[in-house]
């Protein structure tokens, strides 16, 4: 293994980015109805997600590189969406010398409480280039209605 020179700027930059992410996450949790169950103790890593909402649906995107489609499980129960699976180390590297291992492996799970009811039978999930996209159409009642107020 070669010695890599310590780069304080890089370490600092990484720390700052981590801190920024954590603060963003805190804000997300605080302000949004889309709540996440805390399961950090169980899983070793958590895929990062983007969740957005339109009038008709919720769109969940998760970065899960290195996991095959068949190793990802998406379930909805009691209005809770769970994404779980396992990222395995590449077979061919098991018996080799490593110089650097930065990627994370192991099982993961993330659970979110949906703020409104969704059409469970119409949920679509697709997996492409390591990104999982789940589209959850809202049921009619859960759609926000705009009521115009007429000023007489």
């Amino acid at each position: 293994m070669t010695l890599v020179r310590w780069n304080p700027i890089r370490d600092l930059a990484t720390d700052l980015i981590d801190l920024q992410r954590e603060i963003n996450r805190m804000f997300d949790r605080f302000f949004r109805g889309f709540e996440e169950e805390e399961e950090r103790a169980i899983s070793t890593w958590r895929p990062v997600v983007d969740i957005s909402e339109t009038d008709d649906e919720y769109i969940v995107r998760a970065e899960i590189p290195g996991v095959s489609k068949d190793d990802i499980k998406v379930t909805i129960r009691d209005n809770m969406l769970t994404i779980s699976g396992e990222k395995k180390q590449e077979k061919e590297t098991k018996n080799e010398n490593f110089h650097r291992v930065e990627r994370v492996y192991g099982s993961f799970t993330r659970t979110f409480t949906l703020p409104g009811a969704v059409k469970v039978d119409k949920v679509e999930a697709k997996f492409k280039d390591g990104v999982l996209t789940i589209k959850l159409p809202k049921v009619e009642e859960a759609k926000s209605k705009e009521i115009e107020v007429k000023v007489g």
Partner: peptide
Amino acid sequence: IEKPKDSEVLFNEI
């Protein structure tokens, strides 16, 4: 990442 119009962001970790 395609972003639908008029969407509200709930989680932004990516």
